[in-house]
Design a protein around this nucleic acid. Structure first.
Lengths: 181, 181
DNA sequence: GCGGCTTTGTGAAAATCTTCACAATATTAG
DNA sequence: CTAATATTGTGAAGATTTTCACAAAGCCGC
């Protein structure tokens, strides 16, 4: 497959595809393009997707439920191995094969289960107290759905996700059109 | 509130806040900062959030369910007014106050309900046929959860969302650390 | 093996985005 | 009213990202 074809399938350009790939090495053959299977495998390795990651979900609310329901994570390289909440009415519930645990058990369970990544799906107010546990447990990455900036030690990687923001970007784009009309 | 304080609360800098805002006008008072209520209202207007948007969900699968469950949309400016799927076993189900309709009814229902935005939560294979309906109905914006580049007329605004991508970025960041160690 | 065709990998140029830094302006205290 | 202090709005500088464009490879047919 050529960089041209790749760019056609994704929202980018052929030059961008080549430039991006060249940052990590030389994967293609001039005149021929890229071998899909080979490229896929080498990229997986680069992206750290050639192994499974152990993930804990913190927050058994609507977002948490949505993420577990979604299921797309397991299909990739992520195994949700524990679920936590602070609400006593939720603790004990069964979600998929897992029991929702009280957040106070986070450190011991996370260490025991070798949790590397946390999906943080809790309200902003709950963030500071939860982050203490997360930090103590030595978690290395956080996928953050709370609309706040996390304060973490440098060794912890954070990715912020905010779905409503995407919708608001759409709303903005549409409003612009209205004004032009 | 000063641009300094705003930057502290979000993942940005004071200069960035001021620059961004200056693109749309002059909202603050020198020496004083920004009036939060006033700024909030004016930004909502700019972002098109001073009105409600009528949204249709296409795809009553896991992602769709997750989004409706999540509920964050109604709290903002978005009302889900219809849900569609092509799977006969799903059509007729009640989701919240809505009945899942067959995708073949999309055009008439969307026009009838004044749907402006579509949340596309369907598998990649289903995209082309669904997009025909969406196009015909005159929808103006699409929040796309399918990992493919949509081909749309210029007047249609598209926002792509890919949650797994965020996780993969985390995975990459963590792998990098491993290599450094 | 050679000429024609294709496509990569990558410097250099262009475009965009972020940060710097400071004059302009507003408030407050005395 | 003046001096001291705070903070915006914004050109200019700096950094980063994207695009351009083309030499270097590689395949194919003859």
């Amino acid at each position: 497959m050529s960089s041209e074809e790749m760019s056609g399938r994704s929202a980018t350009t052929a030059a961008q595809v080549r430039k991006d790939l060249s940052l990590f090495g030389s994967f293609g053959k001039r005149g021929l393009g890229y071998d899909v299977a080979d490229l896929s495998e080498r990229l997986k390795k680069i992206l750290g997707l050639d192994r499974r990651w152990r993930v804990a979900l913190v927050g058994a609310g609507r977002i948490g439920s949505a993420l577990v329901e979604y299921g797309g994570f397991a299909e990739r390289s992520y195994d949700v191995v524990a679920i936590f909440d602070s609400d006593p009415s939720k603790v004990g519930e069964r979600w998929g094969g897992l029991r929702v645990r009280d957040i106070s058990q986070f450190v011991s369970v996370a260490k025991d289960q070798g949790v590397e990544i946390v999906i943080l799906a809790i309200p902003v107010e709950a963030v500071p107290s939860v982050m203490e546990y997360v930090e103590e447990a030595g978690v290395r990455g956080i996928l953050n759905f709370a609309p706040t900036k996390l304060k973490v030690p440098e060794r912890v990687a954070v990715k912020d996700v905010n779905m409503v923001m995407e919708l608001e970007a759409l709303s903005f784009a549409l409003s612009q059109e209205d004004e032009e009309a």
